[in-house]
C-alpha cells in the first residue's frame, strides 16, 4: 500500500464522523415528551431553553470526539498502543458525560411522570423475525466455514499472518492449531449466541407499550429491533468467517475497509429511517419513572419486572440494571467474547 497512514487516518476519520453523527442526532430520536431521558411537555423540545441544552450538548460532544480523534492520530503516528486505546475509549465514554450533563439540566423542566399504566390482557406469543430458520442462518454460515477449514486442514500453513499493520505488513501470526484456525469462529459463535439470546428475550421480556393509550403496539417496535440485531448477527458471521479463512486467502487487502464502509453506511441509512418514526410515535407513558434513569442512560428499577425497556435517549432498548439477568446478558455480550479473544491472543 502506497500511503497506509493516510488510509488508516481516512478510516478512523470515517468511524469518528459516524460516531459524532450518532451522538449529534441521538437526542432527536427520542419520542415526543422525552428530552434527554426526562419527561417534559411535548412543546418543550421547540423552546429556547431546550435549544440551549441541545447546543451545549453538541458542542461538548464535538469537543470529546475531537479529543478522541487527536488521541487516535497521536497513537497511530507514534505507534503507541495506549494512546490508541485511550482515544477509542474516550470516543465512547466522553459524549456520555455530555448526555449526563444535559440530562441534569433537563431535569429542571421535568413534569410528573404519568401514573396510569395499561396492559393488554391478550396473551402474546413471541415472533422471531424470519422464524427459527433465519435465526440459525448466521450459525450455519460459520458452521460451513468450520467444515471448509476442517476439510482443507492440510492446506493451512504451519504459521500464517492474522494481523497487518498500517504499512500493510503482517505483525501478528498464528499457527495451525484448533484455537489458531478456529479462533475467529469461536468468538463469532459466542457473540452470535449472546445476540440470539437477546433477540429471543426481546420477544418475551420487553415491555409492549400502548402507542395510542388503549391498544398495545403489537410488538412492532421490538420486532424492528430484533431485525436490526439479526442483521448484525449476519454481518458478524460474515466478518468472522472471512477472518477464519485468512490462512487460505492471505492479506485481506481492502476488504475490511469496504465491509466497514458498507456496515456504517447501512446502519446510517437504517437509523435515519427511524428518525421520523421516533419523532412521530405517540406514547403516553413508557412505564419508567424519571428518577430511575440514572445519568439519563442507565435504567435501574427493582420494582419493574421488565428486563428490556425502551431507551429514552436514542432508539432501541436497554436493560433494567436492577435485574440480575441484565448483568448476565451483558456478560454474554461483552465479557465472554473478550475472554475468548484474550484466550486466542494468548495462543498467538
Amino acid at each position: 500500500m502506497a500511503h497506509p497512514q493516510i488510509l488508516f487516518g481516512a478510516v478512523m476519520l470515517l468511524v469518528i464522523v459516524f460516531v459524532e453523527w450518532l451522538f449529534w442526532m441521538l437526542p432527536l430520536w427520542s419520542r415526543p415528551g422525552i428530552f434527554f431521558a426526562v419527561t417534559v411537555v411535548p412543546e418543550f423540545r421547540s423552546s429556547s431553553e431546550a435549544a440551549r441544552i441541545l447546543r451545549n450538548y453538541r458542542i461538548q460532544t464535538l469537543l470529546s470526539v475531537a479529543i478522541a480523534f487527536a488521541l487516535v492520530v497521536i497513537g497511530a503516528l507514534s505507534l503507541k498502543f495506549a494512546f490508541l486505546i485511550l482515544g477509542i475509549v474516550w470516543l465512547m465514554v466522553g459524549p456520555l458525560f455530555s448526555i449526563a450533563r444535559a440530562h441534569k439540566n433537563a431535569m429542571r423542566h421535568a413534569i410528573a411522570t404519568p401514573t396510569i399504566r395499561e396492559a393488554s390482557l391478550t396473551p402474546r406469543s413471541a415472533q422471531l423475525p424470519g422464524g427459527w430458520l433465519l435465526q440459525l442462518c448466521p450459525f450455519a454460515i460459520m458452521l460451513i466455514t468450520a467444515v471448509y477449514i476442517a476439510v482443507h486442514w492440510q492446506q493451512i500453513p504451519d504459521r500464517f499472518p492474522v494481523h497487518w499493520g498500517v504499512d500493510g505488513k503482517p505483525n501478528g501470526w498464528s499457527d495451525r492449531s484448533v484455537l489458531g484456525a478456529y479462533g475467529p469462529l469461536i468468538v463469532g459463535f459466542a457473540v452470535s449466541i449472546g445476540l440470539s439470546i437477546i433477540v429471543v428475550s426481546f420477544s418475551y421480556l420487553a415491555r409492549h407499550i400502548p402507542t395510542t393509550g388503549d391498544l398495545p403496539s403489537k410488538g412492532d417496535f421490538t420486532h424492528r429491533i430484533a431485525i436490526f440485531l439479526l442483521g448484525i448477527e449476519f454481518f458478524l458471521a460474515a466478518m468472522f468467517s472471512l477472518a477464519a479463512l485468512l490462512p487460505f486467502t492471505g492479506n485481506p487487502g481492502l476488504a475490511p475497509i469496504v465491509v466497514l464502509v458498507i456496515g456504517l453506511g447501512g446502519s446510517a441509512i437504517f437509523l435515519r429511517g427511524w428518525i421520523s418514526r421516533g419523532a412521530s410515535r405517540s406514547v403516553p407513558a413508557d412505564g419508567t419513572p424519571d428518577n430511575c434513569w440514572k445519568l439519563g442512560l442507565f435504567y435501574f428499577n427493582p420494582d419493574d419486572s421488565a428486563l428490556f425497556v425502551e431507551k429514552r435517549i436514542g432508539i432501541g432498548y436497554t436493560v433494567n440494571f436492577a435485574r440480575a439477568s441484565a448483568w448476565i446478558c451483558l456478560a454474554l455480550i461483552l465479557f465472554l467474547p473478550i475472554f475468548l479473544l484474550f484466550l486466542i491472543l494468548q495462543q498467538h
Binding site: 395499561e118 396473551p123 419493574d304 419486572s305 428486563l307
Partner: peptide, 21 residues
C-alpha cells in the same frame, strides 16, 4: 373471557404494567 381462555402470564402482565411480578 370465555371458559378455558388463557390470561397473560404473570411475567408478561408485570412487564407490561411495569410492576414487580
Amino acid at each position: 373471557f370465555a371458559r378455558g381462555e388463557q390470561l397473560p402470564t404473570v411475567r408478561q402482565l408485570a412487564i407490561d404494567l411495569g410492576v414487580h411480578h
